[in-house]
């Protein structure tokens, strides 16, 4: 019986390895990773004890090059005890924090210490003395005009015209990672913050400068203007003919 249980345990570990290879495959097609800023890279996750925490999310591509999201959640141990790192798959626009206790699709057990690191080519999950390395391709391929997917299904989230596909704050912090490469048609930049180096972008087949549409971008540098961007007749944007630039819900438009 003792021998049988060992064999069964080891068999389950190997089955487990197969599942892990599925994770490896789908994360090869990661488009971007968003880490919870409360947990810095290469620093052990120790707090808050006895809670389940969202560590990061991996947004990867399905066969149709649409988005799917895996949330990585960690049960921070109360004291010196083994814990669990789990993957929860959600619809990409859903929040990981809202899905902390949703169905787990994969997990690593018996972890006493956990941290992670990310760069453009790999994600490393560091569990005690084991480092799981996940190779990431799309983070570099996308700049070369290529994307890759290892997922067989095509039921991911589809971007549509009018969706925001990239967004930044007034201080140029990225609010939404750039996914405009997935837009079904064109892209339009929009002045929606005071950031001078980046703009919000929409998936859009419309052109700027016409009635009701986004104002065209003149730019902060060319206008020489340093004040609040969000005002009627803002010099940061321009419109066709006699249309005026107006600021509606923080976005410069033409009216």
């Amino acid at each position: 019986m003792y021998v049988l249980s060992i064999v069964l345990y080891l068999f389950s570990l190997n089955t487990f390895a197969t599942s892990e290879s599925i994770i490896e495959d789908r994360w090869r097609g990661a488009l971007f990773i968003q880490a919870n800023k409360n947990f810095k890279q290469d620093i052990l996750v120790k707090e808050p004890r006895g809670t389940r925490q969202h560590i990061l999310s991996v947004t990867y591509l399905d066969k149709g090059f649409n988005k799917v999201k895996d949330c990585l959640v960690y049960d921070v141990p109360k004291k010196r005890e083994a814990s669990t790192l789990s993957i929860i798959t959600v619809i990409s626009k859903e929040s990981c924090v809202d899905n902390l206790f949703s169905k787990v699709s994969f997990k690593w057990d018996q972890i006493f210490n956990f941290t992670y690191s990310i760069n453009d080519t790999k994600l490393e999950l560091k569990m005690d003395d084991i480092v799981k390395i996940f190779n990431l391709y799309n983070l570099t391929l996308r700049s070369k005009g290529m994307l890759i997917s290892f997922v067989d299904s095509d039921d991911g989230e589809v971007l549509k015209s009018g969706d925001i596909c990239f967004d930044v704050s007034d201080k140029c912090n990225v609010l939404m990672p750039d996914q405009c490469i997935l837009c079904p048609g064109g892209i339009q930049p929009a002045i929606a913050s005071s950031c001078q180096s980046k703009t919000r972008k929409y998936c859009s087949d419309k052109v700027c400068g016409t009635r009701g549409e986004l104002a065209c971008v003149r730019g902060f540098v060319a206008s020489g203007y340093q004040g609040d961007y969000c005002l009627n007749d803002s010099p940061i944007g321009y419109c066709s003919g006699r249309l005026r630039v107006v600021c509606i819900d923080g976005v410069l438009r033409c009216r």
Partner: peptide
């Protein structure tokens, strides 16, 4: 026996 899909963008 891995299957994967590549998309190549026409922006040369």
């Amino acid at each position: 026996q891995k299957n994967f899909t590549i998309k190549l963008f026409n922006n040369c």
